[in-house]
């Protein structure tokens, strides 16, 4: 796991690196927070970078805490894969305090990673990154026919959908019948 000025990723949170002080005026020390994903690897991220995430920003804005308390209570995003969270953290760091460009060419091209990233970004409410990701998803099917789109995105046909629905109903019916029989057996 790599360490950067704004963010450090490790199994155990490391000490923050101090940014070089400006000669003009002493800067207010930046506060850092800690997040981890499914892989439990902790990422240290500055409050400035986390401002991109409306969810995290909303959570931390009302929490007065010390560095130690933040370190001891990393935000657990168990629903986000470690590498996806790493991408999100990297993006937030790269775009910290900067206007976001109209295009972002560094987004993953692989379908699975991109969809995971979309869901993570949607969950974390990072509006600009979500816009880029959705654009990238749209680009996946540029110039494709309905059959090709169905294949790329694994969209079932209406017939397949209906069959799956019937099967699910059948299964649910069987389970309900089984439960009723079991309940009747218990009553006896």
């Amino acid at each position: 796991m790599s360490s950067t000025e704004q963010g450090t990723s490790s199994a155990a949170p490391a000490e923050p690196t101090t940014a070089p002080e400006s000669a003009a005026a002493p800067e207010v020390p930046e506060s850092f927070y800690y997040v981890h994903g499914k892989d439990k690897v902790v990422h240290k991220v500055s409050a400035g970078a986390l401002q991109h995430s409306a969810l995290i920003h909303g959570m931390i804005s009302n929490l007065g805490y010390t560095e130690e308390q933040a370190k001891a209570n990393p935000f657990p995003f168990e629903n986000i894969d470690g590498d996806i969270l790493q991408m999100v953290v990297d993006w937030c760091n790269q775009h910290k305090g900067k206007p976001t460009p109209p295009e972002d060419t560094n987004l993953p091209k692989q379908k699975e990673k991109l969809f995971d990233l979309v869901l993570a970004v949607n969950y974390l409410e990072i509006k600009e990154l979500l816009t880029y990701c959705c654009k990238q998803v749209a680009m996946m099917v540029k110039g494709k026919s309905p059959e090709e789109i169905r294949e790329i995105w694994m969209i079932p046909t209406d017939a397949e959908d209906e069959a799956a629905e019937k099967e699910a109903k059948k299964r649910a019916g069987k389970e309900a019948a089984g439960e009723t029989a079991a309940a009747a057996g218990d009553a006896k």
Binding site: K111, E112, K113, F115, D116, V118, L119, N122, L130, T131, C134, K135, V137, A138, V141, K142, G143, K144, S145, P146, E148, I149, R150, W153, M154, I155, P156, T157, D158, D161
Partner: peptide, 30 residues
């Protein structure tokens, strides 16, 4: 991680970024 597992609002956002031809193709899938 599949299109079919995307929430509706995300799908809408993605469709909003598509050109007319891709929209026409997508609406023929299901």
């Amino acid at each position: 991680t599949n299109w079919c597992d995307m929430p509706t609002e995300i799908k809408r956002e993605c469709i909003g970024k598509m050109e007319i031809n891709e929209r026409l193709s997508l609406r023929c899938t299901a």
